[in-house]
Simulated assay, not measured.
Amino acid sequence: MMTKSIIGKWHGLRQGSVGHRTVADILTGSSFLANMSVTHTYEHIFNKMVSALEWHPDYNLVLIGSRGGDISLVDLKNRTVKLCHRGGGRGQQITDIKCDLLDTNWYYTSSTSGKIIKQRLDGRDEIILKDTYISDEFYSSSRFSCIDVCPQRKLLVAGDSRGTIHLMPSCESESLVNSKTNCFSIGVHNSNILHTEFNKFNSDLFITASIDCTAKLWDTRMFSSHCSKPLLNIRHSHPLNSATFSLVNGSTLLITNYFDEISVYRGPNWQLERCIKHCHEQTQRFCLLKAKWHPLCELFLIGTFSSNPSVSGHYYDRPQAVDVIDPQNGQIKSSLSDGNPGVISISQFNTSGDIIAAIKGQNLIIFESIDSD
């Protein structure tokens, strides 16, 4: 049943093969990884570190945002970089980017400036969905850390630095956005929410992960400004970077903590299946290291880092890898690196699963599966 669902999903993405790879290669999870290597590096795209990355539904396009608030569109086919939005500099960090799947000319961003914005790729138009800036006091009451969008419900969820969840329409019109009755906020965590995500197979469910060491599962039908009781409250011993549902079946949940553990839970009861030990220590020098799923098979990838020199060396003078891991047994299927010093802080497969976009400082690195012929 799982294989049929994967192939069905695959058929809607591209016909026949993934670049040089067949569906069988992707399902086995070994052949395409064995031949992955760096095909191009886009250097110093911004004058500040890259802080967010999202693949566009067109598998050749990547959106990236910086700590200065800049947003650019990278075209892998033509190897061009186009500035979509000029940021304001300090205090404007782009914390998350999501594409509008109903109209791929638009995308959404969250930032530490306290704004949730829907913008056009050509930079000609934008709609501010949420703005917490208090003009009289010259500061933002909330810094947004993460967002996700559910196209089926036309709903956007955002998490902020105070542990508050904001639910709002993903915006059909300005008048709908400006209507306060269509947007509400409620505190659900004791500290910064670093990740929120809808379940792609059940649009009623979304999850939040926080620095307060908890991940909470919510049902939108039971969620209101007067009630905030989660379906499930998962407590850990360390702060959490992310909680993400499998893109293959929606019933496997990965929770990444701040330090050295990735927990695997299985639905529908969301019981802990295993804990995978993996070095991905958090430091303010680079962005959160989060596990990200492959879109067509149950593999995930995450960058590596340890502050212990005996484990990984000093990150600034020694190459660090991004690991592709099998959640069934915790086995590392492949470790990818460009061979240059530094930590790969953000990494993500494209929609067809044969290309990885990875961030190292101000650089975007592209890994592709290439035939060895």
Score class of each variant (00 low, 15 high):
Pro230Thr: 08
Thr304Trp: 00
Ser337Glu: 12
Pro230Ser: 09
Gln119Lys: 15
His189Lys: 07
Ile234Glu: 02
Ile211His: 01
Thr214Glu: 11
Val74Arg: 06
Thr104His: 08
Leu301Val: 09
Thr22Asp: 05
Trp106Leu: 06
Asn47Cys: 04
Ser263Ala: 14
Gln152Glu: 13
Val74Phe: 06
Ser347Met: 01
Arg67Leu: 13
Leu301His: 06
Arg90Gln: 15
Ile234Ser: 04
Ser372Cys: 10
Ile6Gly: 02
Asp125Lys: 09
Arg153Asp: 11
Ile97Ser: 11
Ile97Ala: 12
Ile276Trp: 02
Ile255Met: 05
Leu232Gly: 03
Ala357Glu: 04
Val188Ala: 10
Asp131Gly: 05
Gln93Ser: 14
Leu63Ala: 12
Glu172Phe: 11
Met2Phe: 03
Thr104Val: 12
Thr244Trp: 02
His20Trp: 05
Gly29His: 02
Val149Lys: 01
Leu121Val: 10
Thr283Pro: 00
Thr28Ala: 02
Ile127Lys: 11
Gln331Gly: 11
His56Phe: 10
Thr181Asp: 15
Pro268Tyr: 05
Val74Ala: 08
Lys216Pro: 05
Gly88Thr: 13
Gly29Thr: 05
Cys171Arg: 07
Cys213Asn: 13
His44Ile: 05
Ser312Leu: 08
Asn202Cys: 13
Arg274Tyr: 00
Ile346Phe: 00
Asp125Glu: 15
Asn105His: 11
Thr95Glu: 14
Gly16Tyr: 01
Arg153Val: 02
Asn60Phe: 09
Ser345Trp: 01
Ile134Met: 12
Trp106Asp: 04
Leu194Met: 09
Ser113Phe: 10
Asp373Cys: 10
Asn350Ala: 09
Cys297Ala: 03
Pro327Gly: 10
Met1Arg: 06
Glu174Gly: 01
Leu13Met: 08
Thr181Met: 11
His278Gln: 09
Ile127His: 09
Arg221Phe: 02
Arg21Ser: 12
Tyr107Ala: 08
Ile147Leu: 15
Tyr133Asp: 07
Gly91Tyr: 07
Lys333Trp: 10
Ala34Phe: 01
Met2Pro: 01
Ser337Gln: 13
Phe46Asp: 07
Thr196Asp: 11
Asp260Trp: 03
Ser263Ile: 02
Val264Trp: 03
Asn105Ala: 12
Pro319His: 09
Val322Trp: 03
Asn241His: 10
Val50Lys: 00
Gly353Thr: 08
Gly353Ser: 09
Ala158Asn: 14
Ile26Phe: 02
Met1Asn: 10
His166Met: 13
Ser334Asn: 15
Thr28Phe: 00
Trp218Tyr: 13
Arg266Asn: 14
Phe201Trp: 14
Ser352Pro: 00
Leu364Asn: 04
Gly159Ile: 08
Asp122Val: 07
Arg221Pro: 07
Leu156Phe: 14
Asp122Leu: 06
Lys115Cys: 14
Leu176Ser: 14
Trp10His: 08
Asn192Leu: 08
Asp317Thr: 08
Arg90Trp: 13
Trp270Cys: 06
Asn308Cys: 09
Lys200Glu: 15
Ser145Pro: 00
Asn78Phe: 13
Ile26Val: 13
Asp96Tyr: 05
Ile356Met: 05
Lys98Gln: 15
Ser110Met: 07
Leu364Ala: 05
Asp122Ile: 05
Tyr42Met: 03
His278Cys: 02
Lys82Ala: 06
Ser224Met: 11
Glu54Tyr: 10
Ile26Leu: 11
Ser110Gly: 07
Ser237Phe: 06
Asp131Glu: 07
